[in-house]
Design a protein around this nucleic acid. Structure first.
Lengths: 208, 208
DNA sequence: AAGGCACAGTAACATTTATCACATTGGGTT
DNA sequence: AACCCAATGTGATAAATGTTACTGTGCCTT
């Protein structure tokens, strides 16, 4: 069996948990799956119970500008925001670690706002924290140069995976910051010289 | 007297309008006033009934990175989002045209979500449209070079003021795009040569 | 072992953007 | 008119970032 929903979403009331269990559908997806595309209509609100999803903004040239990760206990703010009017998505969502998600039909998402206080608070808090996160991203691109943005990027990834060894290629970082691999390689080398990281093949060890 | 609230917020139910009129406080502020600062605690939700407010992100060096405008019939999404927990603001709000605002205490903002469907819909739509707008801003800085960003900036201002003659200095644009005046002057000149704008002192005429 | 391949390092050069230094312009003030 | 001053124009140069082209390196496959 799966981990009970109550453990993953401890703030949900028991009634809400029951409502979810009897109305929502579960779905598993493998790493690499694209769960949502720009321009696609949104039909469900998505809660994550396992794995990791990358939310990014797609560039015309194939850039995958990194916004944030969704992890267990979290929900896709975009899918909630678009709920009421069944709007189009403005972002891409790609599975980066095999996930299990709970899909909630938009009509219920809306209805529960009135019926379950714990759902209302969860939704509002999801909005708030993601808006804040996106504002920080704006900051980083608006005011910082690439070396600082790289440090910010690494820090966020460290926080998200709760480890100090990131398994990403330079190319991947470059794509997510919309720059080129060479630039990232150069900057990482400089960071290594400053003693901030240790570089290994397919792995970046964060020292500070 | 003022324009009735019902005209400015036509979707609000009559009960909601009454509730606002008997609970909220009005406030007028002159151009130049800073209504909200980064780090400041938010005590009210703000509805705009007259004038224009600029929402921006402040840089360490005094940059005023432009996010969007608030205009009559709109509300500050940040002040709503932070409502439930009385969080700190992450943005700056400056009056650019003398405004009248309606201030709604956070407790009511929250309470009305359950009581007034039209309030609920207004709040959700405010979130949605601002989130979308911020995502477009991210796009513009993440994927575009300065000339395209300038065009995007001018377009947004044209849409906001519903006119084709913008009364802004090059310096002001530079501050809001976090670049330098010289760069903006040069790019505007190029745009003039391409026939996109006509440059006058303290005024930019948008031709296309 | 040999070859293929993704990943990484690096030099050289191009382009974009930022900065500095100074000239010009036009409106308002005295 | 003479002056002041903010706004704008422009060249020269510096710095950051992007691009091209190639080398090296470790791992996997055959």
């Amino acid at each position: 069996m799966q981990t009970p929903l109550k453990n993953i979403f401890p703030n949900f009331s028991n009634e809400l948990i029951s409502a979810i269990e009897s109305n929502a559908t579960m779905q598993d997806s493998e790493a690499g799956t694209i769960l949502m595309r720009t321009g696609q209509y949104i039909k469900n609100t998505v809660l994550i119970t396992k794995g990791k999803i990358k939310i990014y903004r797609e560039g015309e040239d194939g850039g995958e500008f990194f916004m944030y990760y969704l992890q267990p206990g979290q929900a896709c703010a975009i899918s909630m925001i678009c709920a009421t009017k069944s709007e189009k998505s403005q972002i891409m969502a790609k599975v980066v670690e095999d996930v299990s998600v709970v899909m909630i039909p938009l009509t219920l998402m809306d209805k529960w706002m009135m019926e379950h206080r714990s759902w209302y608070e969860f939704v509002i808090e999801t909005y708030r924290s993601r808006f804040e996160e996106v504002l920080e991203v704006v900051d980083s691109i608006a005011f910082r140069s690439m070396d600082e943005r790289l440090e910010f990027y690494l820090k966020r990834h460290k926080d998200a995976c709760e480890c100090t060894e990131l398994k990403v290629s330079h190319q991947e970082i470059a794509t997510e910051l919309n720059t080129s691999r060479e630039v990232i390689s150069r900057l990482l080398k400089k960071m290594e010289q400053r003693g901030l990281v240790k570089l290994n093949r397919n792995q970046i060890e964060l020292l500070k």
